[in-house]
């Protein structure tokens, strides 16, 4: 009984939160994410100086009290630029994963619920997308649509759609065989209602986990695209772009590349830590594994 009650509904959210609080790694990840969100939202107000304030007297200054992250080749404050770029990264990450989530979950729901030819057509399309390396596909899409923040976002969204479609479909396939779905059919509920009210809530856990993990990869992809000059266009700051600009100065001004790189690293790490912790709590398969381990000892 207690296993059942632990596994359901509002207990799940509470358990997720308490797990985050008690797991030191997950707690660290959450704190970093919280900081990131604050910086992302209020970065331009919090930044000590303007992002495009050129100061030719203070070019390539190493980190100091007045410029904790140093200055770049145009004398711009690296700290301010890293802070403002956080917004770009978060925005691209959230919007692109939002696209992937909306499209992927919808396709996965229909494919898994109706099976048959629809399933085949949709999932083979997803397989085609899935077959390409993530970055290659993103670059190809940006090449077609033209570089820029919006196209980079769309490209990353497209690239991460198949994983959501797959996770959703896998969940739907198991949930649709449950008796409560048959019960809903016997009541006369429409397919859309069954998908929305019965199937989706019961596959929320793996989707939440996948979302947090995908956010990390989406942010990494955005950095890569910007590094290649296909994302955010200068002079607007982006971590990937700053990394690219700093690569010519690795020997004489390490801080140009180090701080944006560290920002990417910490962000991705934080999302992964939180995602892993959520998986441990929410994903039933993982739960049964840990339960099995517990009962075996």
């Amino acid at each position: 009984m207690s296993e059942h009650s632990e596994r359901t509904s509002e207990g799940q959210l509470r358990r997720a939160l308490s797990a985050l609080r008690h797991d030191p790694l997950a707690l660290t990840g959450s704190v970093v994410l919280a900081l990131l969100v604050v910086v992302g939202v209020a970065g331009s107000w919090l930044a000590p100086s303007g992002i495009n304030e050129v100061d030719v007297d203070r070019m390539l200054q190493p980190p100091s009290w007045s410029h904790p992250f140093g200055t770049d080749e145009l004398g711009r404050d690296v700290l301010s630029r890293v802070m403002v770029a956080a917004r770009v990264s978060l925005q691209v990450g959230l919007v692109s994963v939002g696209i992937a989530l909306a499209v992927g979950v919808t396709l996965g729901l229909f494919a898994g619920y109706y099976r048959g030819w629809l399933d085949n057509v949709l999932m083979r399309c997803m397989d085609v997308l899935f077959a390409f390396p993530v970055l290659l596909l993103a670059v190809a899409i940006v090449a077609v649509l033209g570089p820029g923040l919006l196209t980079a976002t769309v490209a990353i969204g497209v690239v991460y759609t198949p994983i959501f479609a797959r996770v959703t479909r896998a969940g739907v396939l198991s949930v649709r065989e449950q008796v409560f779905v048959r019960a809903a059919v016997s009541i006369g509920a429409s397919d859309l209602r069954i998908m929305r009210r019965h199937v989706l809530p019961n596959i929320a856990a793996p989707l939440i986990v996948q979302t947090s993990l995908s956010l990390a990869f989406a942010i990494l992809s955005e950095a890569a695209l910007s590094f290649l000059g296909l994302g955010v266009q200068p002079p607007a700051p982006a971590w990937g772009r700053m990394l690219y600009d700093g690569r010519g100065f690795v020997t004489e001004a390490w801080w140009l590349g180090f701080f944006p790189g560290a920002a990417i690293f910490l962000t991705v790490l934080a999302f992964n830590l939180v995602g892993d912790a959520l998986r441990d709590v929410l994903d039933p398969r993982q739960l049964t594994v840990s339960e099995a381990r517990r009962s075996a000892t």
Binding site: R7, T8, S9, Q178, V179, F180, R182, A183, A184, V185, S186, I187, G188, R197, H198, P201, N202
Partner: peptide
């Protein structure tokens, strides 16, 4: 038509949506 014929299932645990 489903309003006219209702069903009670064998396993009441499985026939109720755990999330609702």
């Amino acid at each position: 038509l489903r309003r006219r014929v209702a069903m009670v299932f064998q396993d009441p645990q499985a026939s109720l949506d755990p999330r609702r």
